[in-house]
């Protein structure tokens, strides 16, 4: 590179390096511009509405003129009669769901990858991802029907093996609720969740496999030592993101599976909000406050898990 005495001395300091970096990255900034603009207008623009959580929103007054009530809704939520149990129920149900579906999805992706017959593999994959499209309402109806002791598959099998009368109906029981919830969710989403891992596995370099084979590794060992490490970073990121959604467990499925007998374990935050919101004019404010609380917990969980992941993985897998 030529240097001439005519050139001005390079500016130093933070401002200078900022501009230098900008000149280097300007195309990247250009790419970023439309998404950022979208974000600012459509996501940050409405954010002022989160203050509904601190006001008593009435449509007549609009958001800015509704009465300010500070932490009233939060206090109400924390001191409500079954706060403890609904919080615990939400956490437990969600974590159970996340962990099980994560482990099984990764496992299934790895197993599918080992299938040598392309046709069989494709066939299996297609079958496993179809349940994802079934709506929650139908899913619950199917579950209820299959485990119906009188005329469902469960009852039919019971009678087939010589049972008298009717088998134990566990559908409404509190002991069964969490398992029904989680495993029906696994049935529904397992195949779908493996898609991303399958895509990641597609980028495993053949060289690694060949090297491993030359070293005498069996197929199974190759799964553990080649496939798994390849998708582990992706998997960890996915897991971290899932932790960021733990508190916002869906309302519909829990509501449909809820019966009087299992309410002690099946009452979660979203069903609570639904019940309390009905008939009172304060659904928006109260719901927003609880939503904020959920978000705060999600945020903390995500940052924690992300930090753990950073520390524990040698490649420093982290979200940011």
């Amino acid at each position: 590179m030529q240097t001439t005495t005519h050139k001005r001395p390079k500016r130093t300091g933070r401002g200078a390096s900022f501009i230098r970096n900008f000149k280097r990255d300007w195309q990247l900034w250009l790419l970023m511009l439309p998404p950022l603009a979208y974000l600012l207008i459509f996501d940050y623009g409405p954010m002022y509405g989160a203050q509904i959580a601190f006001r008593d929103y009435r449509a007549r007054s609009g958001i800015w003129n509704s009465q300010w009530v500070g932490l009233q809704w939060f206090r109400k939520f924390f001191t409500s009669y079954n706060f403890r149990s609904i919080f615990t129920n939400t956490l437990v149900l969600s974590l159970y769901s996340v962990v099980v579906s994560f482990v099984l999805a990764v496992g299934l992706a790895l197993l599918l990858n080992t299938i040598r017959s392309a046709r069989f593999r494709k066939f299996t994959q297609t079958i496993t991802y179809i349940p994802h499209f079934i709506s929650v309402v139908v899913l619950v109806a199917i579950v209820n029907q299959i485990f119906n002791p009188v005329n469902g598959l469960y009852g039919a099998l019971f009678r087939l093996f010589g049972g008298e009368g009717y088998p134990y109906d566990f559908r409404g029981m509190d002991t069964a609720f969490r398992h029904i919830y989680v495993w029906s969710g696994v049935w529904q989403n397992l195949g779908w969740d493996t898609i991303i891992y399958t895509a990641a596995l597609a980028s495993v370099s053949q060289d690694h496999h060949e090297a491993a084979m030359i070293d005498g590794a069996s197929r199974w060992k190759r799964v553990i030592h080649v496939d798994l490490p390849t998708i582990l970073p992706t998997a960890m990121i996915m897991l971290i993101m899932k932790f960021g959604r733990v508190m916002t467990i869906g309302f519909e499925k829990v509501y449909l599976l809820q019966t009087r007998l299992n309410e002690t374990v099946s009452e979660v935050i979203s069903t609570y909000v639904y019940k309390v919101g009905m008939g009172s004019g304060h659904a928006f404010s109260y719901g927003t406050a609880i939503g904020l609380f959920n978000s705060a917990v999600n945020c903390i969980l995500l940052i924690t898990v992300n930090w753990i992941s950073k520390r524990m993985s040698d490649r420093e897998v982290s979200l940011f």
């Binding site: 900022f18 970096n21 900008f22 280097r24 990255d25 990247l28 900034w29 970023m32 950022l36 974000l39 207008i41 459509f42 996501d43 940050y44 623009g45 409405p46 954010m47 002022y48 509405g49 989160a50 509904i52 929103y57 958001i63 960021g244 928006f284 927003t288 939503g291 904020l292 978000s295 705060a296 999600n298 945020c299 979200l319 940011f320």
Partner: peptide, 27 residues
């Protein structure tokens, strides 16, 4: 990338916090 940390944070925040349906509708 110069703006990596900033932009990532901006995006991540929206994952957790949003204004809700009323202000979005008003917008």
């Amino acid at each position: 990338f110069q703006g990596r940390k900033l932009c990532m944070t901006l995006f991540m925040v929206t994952m957790f916090f949003s204004g809700g349906i009323i202000p979005s509708y008003i917008l």
